[in-house]
């Protein structure tokens, strides 16, 4: 059993749901990213998603686009991120997941990228521009290496696609809550519950919801039905606002603790 699956089992036994914060790796610098991951784990993050910055992040809204630009301006890259993650692995037990668009991995060589991700200590991989039809080569490599390739499902995925995606899923299923790009929204989409139910009907794997979640209230609502909540842009935006603040890491820790609190008291039990 992989570290991701174990984490969901443990949470289920405790009647808790998972909080998965997202950081753009290298925003505002890789050393800060290292501190943020440690802080997040210490403040209750159950799994942690790190986004590798890409020049053309077409699934991302303005907040993560700006973070990607800042990270690239600082020279962030896969090669520089790997040792940072390796240095974290002894100190952080939460599963670490890389979010990367396909091209940086493709350029690195898929086989080499998968090997190096596993060696550095990554447990999972999310590739937002890799639908199952195109995913076979990476899927095979990841499976052989014990890296969970976590697929996305969308509001536009019909029943047939839900089954196709669920069958190949490893770790958990990432349910994209809305038709759109990443970014904090004021309200949860009205048909989210229906989406979760439809997906639940075709899989026993954990379901985590992302895109648009920004507050502890959103998290509390989502984990009534899902196994976890992914919060990205709301955290990245706060990091942006706190640029230059020496207490930034601690303040982000406080935000994560508040989000995590919402996964303890709102679950189905």
């Amino acid at each position: 059993m992989g570290r991701i699956e174990e984490t969901f089992h443990r949470l289920r036994r405790r009647g808790e749901r998972a909080l998965i914060p997202y950081f753009t790796a290298g925003d505002p610098g890789l050393e800060v990213t290292r501190q943020l991951v440690e802080e997040a784990a210490a403040r209750g993050a159950d799994l942690i998603e790190l986004g590798l910055p890409f020049s053309d992040p077409l699934a991302d809204g303005p907040t993560i686009q700006r973070a990607s630009q800042r990270a690239l301006a600082q020279g962030a890259s896969l090669a520089k991120l790997l040792p940072v993650v390796a240095s974290l692995r002894g100190r952080v037990s939460a599963p670490l997941i890389l979010m990367s668009y396909l091209n940086p991995l493709h350029r690195h060589g898929l086989a080499a990228a998968v090997q190096e991700l596993v060696q550095a200590g990554f447990d999972g991989l999310i590739v937002p521009d890799l639908p199952p039809e195109e995913g076979r080569p990476l899927d095979r490599l990841a499976r052989a290496a014990g890296l969970d390739l976590i697929p996305l499902v969308a509001p536009t995925s019909g029943p047939e696609r839900l089954r196709l995606i669920a069958r190949r899923a490893r770790g958990f299923l990432y349910l994209v809550a809305l038709t759109g790009v990443t970014g904090a929204r004021a309200e949860l989409p009205p048909d989210l519950l229906r989406q979760i139910r439809e997906l639940r009907a075709v899989t026993s794997k954990p379901i985590c919801v992302g895109f648009g979640l920004s507050t502890p209230e959103h998290v509390r609502e989502v984990v009534r039905w899902a196994d976890g909540a992914i919060v990205g842009s709301a955290i990245v935006r706060r990091i942006e606002e706190l640029q230059g603040d020496p207490g930034m890491v601690g303040k982000i820790g406080g935000l994560i603790a508040a989000l995590k609190g919402a996964t303890r008291d709102g679950g189905q039990g």
């Binding site: 396909l102 195109e134 996305l152 969308a154 536009t156 995925s157 696609r161 995606i165 994209v176 759109g180």
Partner: peptide
């Protein structure tokens, strides 16, 4: 070629 797009666009 191919279709390297977010899942949301696959059905459309």
């Amino acid at each position: 070629g191919g279709r390297f797009v977010p899942e949301t666009l696959m059905t459309p």
